[in-house]
């Protein structure tokens, strides 16, 4: 399909890091079912580093591909680095997204930030 790059199609057809990791510390939930894109990004954190990550996504091919890509980028990164993953970075690594789909990749980067926020809140409570 010409709409999406080969990399998008690869991540859509063979998504990485599917589902909840066996152990996870926090989840970032973004999007809403009414507009059709919902992403849950789960993270496990050890010594300030994302040691495991997984996602659950309902959405179009771009939503699935960006979820998959964002988990690949964030895996093994420090929280500070992961927090700064931008939608442009996700789209760039996917060799571009159609303009109307940019909001989907925005969601994936937001999902990581939400998960980290959720993690920090939990840690601060303890």
């Amino acid at each position: 399909m010409a709409l999406y790059s080969d990399v998008v199609m690869d991540h859509f057809k063979n998504p990485r890091n599917i589902g909840k990791p066996k152990k996870w510390d926090a989840v970032g939930q973004v999007g809403n079912a009414i507009c059709g894109d919902v992403m849950y990004i789960y993270i496990k954190v050890d010594d300030n580093i994302i040691s495991d990550i997984g996602f659950e996504t309902m959405g179009c091919a771009a939503a699935i591909a960006t979820s998959s890509m964002v988990t690949e980028i964030a895996m093994g990164k420090t929280l500070e680095v992961a927090e700064n993953i931008t939608r442009e970075k996700v789209a760039e690594n996917l060799k571009g997204l159609p303009p109307v789909k940019m909001h989907c990749s925005n969601l994936a980067a937001d999902g990581i930030r939400e998960a980290i926020k959720n993690y920090k809140e939990k840690v601060n409570k303890e």
Partner: peptide
């Protein structure tokens, strides 16, 4: 629980053409 564009593209990968009323596939 799922979205039509994904269904359409997976089927397309199997050589099958259908359409969807999904928002994501419309302009």
């Amino acid at each position: 629980y799922i979205e039509g564009e994904g269904i359409l593209l997976h089927l397309d990968g199997a050589g099958i053409a259908v359409s969807t009323g999904s928002a994501c596939s419309s302009l």
